[in-house]
Nucleic acid binder design. Structure first.
Ligand code: FES
Ligand code: FES
Lengths: 141, 141
DNA sequence: GGGTATGAGACTGATATACTCCTATTATTG
DNA sequence: CAATAATAGGAGTATATCAGTCTCATACCC
């Protein structure tokens, strides 16, 4: 089972592309650059827009750009926006449906692992990815 | 999104029950104890049996028991048996479908997180859970 | 052989995933 | 200032997975 869906993967690619562009970029360009089906990316960008991660401009020369610095945008933000909160299991995340909360021997251990993963995903920033691409480009010159 | 499905959750409960019983236990008893739909648990036990995690005995006084010590059975084993390998993303786990393997700035970082999570899940053993239940029972006496 | 238990697997409803297509809005152009 | 072209916005669809049920065959004990 994959923890990160393709939708999130595509969103990460697109946001990295936007971080490098630093200007309004249309979905068509972004989709070609990042090798994502354009119509699918359009829908993904809408969700990122609703979540306030990107700003949009319609009409010719429009497109999307980051709404905040790539340094303040983590992989966790993107995961949570696209596929919802990342949790170890439904039973752990929702005490009201658990029913064995007092004596379940896995709850504590597994929820700690979930919290750990979330913390690590929060430390990977879009700017890290953008910087890596940037460095590679300069090295290739 | 939940990393561990309900099916895996049920499997963990059942295996912990078996670890405490240390004898053949029928699915009906196990299902009642662990609060799992009996027919669903039956199917889950079949998969655990195919994977060699439990042994079965048919007929009266039959049921399932652990095929190996609970100390040698980790949560990761159960996750992989029930829901397949746990990976960060499809694109990361299958280089042949990736296409951007040489320059993807997320591949290295995220696959490291995936490996870390797998390692931690491998360190949580069914015996840990069984021991915790055992201790609680003795304390309640 | 009768009764109790598991084994294998087909079948189903609901939800999520991955993607497509049509519509509304904006900016330039003649 | 309308027509047009470029863009985002949002509805809709096919497939897969999840979660569970049901049936029937098989093995075992008395
Ligand atoms: S978290 Fe609910 S039973 Fe374990
Ligand atoms: S792992 Fe394939 S594009 Fe990032």
């Amino acid at each position: 089972m994959a923890i990160i869906t393709r939708e999130t993967d595509y969103a990460l690619r697109a946001l990295t592309g936007l971080a490098l562009a630093d200007d309004f970029l249309p979905v068509s360009t972004l989709a070609e650059q990042e090798e994502v089906p354009p119509d699918f990316l359009r829908k993904i960008m809408q969700r990122l827009h609703q979540a306030g991660i990107v700003e949009s401009s319609q009409g010719p020369f429009g497109g999307y750009r980051l709404a905040r610095s790539a340094r303040r945008l983590s992989v966790l933000d993107v995961v949570e926006t696209v596929q919802g909160p990342l949790v170890m299991s439904e039973c752990i995340s929702r005490p009201e449906i658990c029913g064995r909360i007092d004596y379940c021997p896995f709850r504590r251990r597994l929820s700690a692992l979930g919290a750990g993963l979330n913390a690590k995903l929060a430390k990977v920033r879009i700017s890290d990815a953008a910087n890596e691409i940037q460095s590679a480009r300069e090295a290739a010159k």
